Amino acid sequence: MKKIFVVLWMTAVLVSCGVSSDIPQVIVDKPIVFNEQRIELTKEYLEDRYNLSGDSVEITPKMIVLHWTAIPTFEGSYRAFYEPTLPSWRPDIESVSGLNVSTHFLVDRDGTIYRLMPETYMGRHVIGLNHCAIGIENVGGTDKTPLTRKQSKANIWLVEYLVDKYDIDYLIGHYEYTQFENHPLWLEVDEGYRTEKTDPGEKFMKRVRQATKKYNFKPVPEK
């Protein structure tokens, strides 16, 4: 794959998919660096972590995972995903892969939706499930910067937008990912590679799930 996806400009994309949320139907493209280095690291991740080899970094989305960044600003959150390799402040996961974390969408606290990478490229945002999951990160999640009502509305709209495009079976919060350990979608080869997560919070997930229950997502496996 020779395609290089780098940040060149910021483009507002109007989306008319007939979803019901009252959030403005706009996605702002603000790409992170997805160059040949990131492509190669992504291929390595797919092979080393999931035993999936090939020349493509494309995925077939079956799941949407909601997150918070635990970083109080959009600028800081965006920088965390921007480079192809992990920053020095992530030694906790560097031994697993040098591929930087990434997400397909980043939602600011005012509800603005940014698309950071192609929706069908693999992003590193959820252990064991990256090969089938679209990630939505939300700026904030700290005591001083809790997730906002505008963010929940934006997430609801974005879930509806993605369901309209892809055959999505699951909608989960990051804190629920380990419940898939015995599920056919779970591919992580290292039984010791896990991190504890609480994002995006049960209250936030309940709000989004309630608003999107018409899609009859499959239930998250019980603990």
Rank of each mutant, 00 (worst) to 15 (best):
K2V: 15
V13E: 13
V13C: 15
S21C: 14
S21E: 03
P24A: 03
Q37N: 11
R38Y: 06
Y45A: 15
R49A: 15
Y50V: 03
N51S: 15
S56M: 00
T60D: 14
M63I: 02
M63F: 10
I64S: 09
L66Q: 11
P72R: 06
T73Y: 00
T73G: 06
G76I: 00
T85N: 06
L86Q: 05
D92C: 12
G98Y: 00
N100A: 03
V101W: 09
V101A: 12
V101L: 12
V101R: 09
L106Y: 05
D108H: 03
D108Y: 08
T112H: 09
R115N: 13
M122A: 07
H125N: 12
G128W: 07
G128P: 01
L129S: 04
L129R: 07
H131A: 06
G135L: 03
G141Y: 00
D143L: 08
P146Q: 02
L147M: 04
L147K: 00
R149L: 12
K150G: 04
A154S: 04
N155H: 06
N155E: 05
E160T: 05
V163F: 07
D164G: 03
K165N: 08
Y166A: 11
D167K: 10
H183G: 07
P184N: 01
L185M: 13
W186G: 08
E188Q: 12
E191F: 09
G192A: 13
G201W: 03
R207K: 14
Q210R: 12
K214F: 01
V220L: 06
E222T: 13
